[in-house]
Write a protein that binds this DNA or RNA. Structure first.
Length: 260
DNA sequence: ATGCCAATGTTCCATTGA
């Protein structure tokens, strides 16, 4: 079964690109981030027509996540536990059953956190603590669990074309990267790095400064796998061709294939 | 230190993003 994550940067502005990619790649599950849409305005009909069930957790204007699945949802869980006052739509978890078993999948839009001397960065670190606690609790279920999304974390210098340019940025600060490592240290596997050490593997290229043309990218979209999911990992790829499409998202899809 | 682009709402500028 193929599970994808894609920060779509506005699902309504990007609907044609999304449908084209779903038709050609045909993933079983697709986690979307930055849908920038309220649930009622989400273009679910066009996606359902391609055979997908649709779960959304959106808000007006920005943020917002969704899970699309060709298999039925057993369970849908919006919101990351740990702070009932948090109004930002950044987390949606679903249990998806197939003929051969169930997979728990989370669509994650981790806060950017810039500028790092503001409460935005404090919020990012606190959000990462909540994600850590929730991951730890969920891992105790010993299920195949795929935490997919835009983590807004550059894990290592080799995950940036120009790491020096990211020095001090919320995506690359030692404290941000440290919390990401702590998450991995719970026993999660970074799917892409389990499959390749290929240099210059990126998932985001800024719209500005000709970043795509210069391959000035970063790897910030990740699929982290529980041991039960990692044991079933067959492959992981980045569909970077979508970045060259007209009116592209600044992120591209990352796709894993699981033997489920 | 800031703008560069792009989407959206607060709409002909401001906010947010990375």
């Amino acid at each position: 079964m193929q599970i994808a994550t894609w920060n779509i940067n506005g699902v309504k502005a990007r609907l044609d690109n999304l449908l084209e990619w779903l038709r050609s790649a045909g993933p079983d599950v697709c986690c979307l981030q930055e849908i920038k849409s309220e649930d009622a305005a989400f273009p679910r009909g066009a996606i359902e027509d391609l055979g997908y069930n649709v779960a959304t957790h959106g808000q007006k204007g920005f943020n917002g996540v969704a899970v699309l699945s060709k298999h039925p949802f057993d369970e849908v869980l919006p919101r990351l536990p740990g702070d009932d006052a948090d109004e930002q739509a950044r987390y949606l978890e679903a249990v998806i059953s197939t003929g051969e078993g169930a997979v728990r999948v989370a669509s994650i839009y981790l806060p950017n956190g810039n500028p790092p001397d503001t409460e935005k960065f404090t919020y990012k670190l606190a959000w990462m603590d909540r994600l850590h606690a929730h991951a730890e609790a969920t891992l105790r279920l010993e299920e195949a669990f795929v935490m997919a999304g835009d983590y807004n974390i550059i894990p290592e210098p080799e995950d940036a074309h120009d790491p020096a340019a990211w020095e001090g940025d919320a995506l690359f600060r030692p404290d941000s990267r440290g919390k990401f490592r702590s998450l991995l240290n719970l026993g999660l596997t970074d799917a892409l790095r389990a499959c390749t050490d290929a240099a210059e593997t990126y998932t985001f290229w800024d719209y500005q400064g000709g970043a795509w043309q210069k391959n000035n990218g970063i790897r910030i979209d990740h699929l982290l796998l529980s041991p039960q999911a990692a044991d079933r990992l067959k492959s992981c790829r980045v569909d970077k061709h979508t970045r060259a499409w007209e009116r592209p998202s600044d992120h591209v899809p990352v796709v894993i294939d699981l033997a489920v």
